[in-house]
């Protein structure tokens, strides 16, 4: 099981993940979601699985931890 993240390019602000698994997802006023820091590894929890499957945009993704580190490094460098 990899690290959870929400693809901001896909998320359209339905906010369903936050309603289903508020312990893992947070949203802004327009409904756009992100993973609460420290909760990236909660992908096995039933509520989170449900949230992943209920995202109309398929925007909740999982990636390998090493790749996650690299991507984070890319973002901070750009």
């Amino acid at each position: 099981m990899g690290e959870l993240w929400v693809d901001g390019g896909r998320c359209q602000g339905h906010a369903r993940c936050w309603a289903l698994a508020p312990e893992t997802f947070e949203i802004d006023e327009e409904g756009y979601a992100h993973v609460i820091p420290g909760r990236e590894n909660s992908g096995d929890e039933p509520n989170v699985r449900k949230a992943i499957r209920n995202c109309p945009e398929r925007a909740i993704l999982e990636r390998e931890s090493t790749e996650a580190g690299e991507k984070a490094a890319e973002v901070s460098a750009s």
Binding site: G13, A15, W18, A19, L20, I27, E29, E30, G31
Partner: peptide
């Protein structure tokens, strides 16, 4: 309408 937070909680019965 423009209320994703309220809508999502309400529709989940919260």
């Amino acid at each position: 309408v423009n209320a994703p937070r309220q809508f999502s909680r309400a529709s989940m019965g919260m």
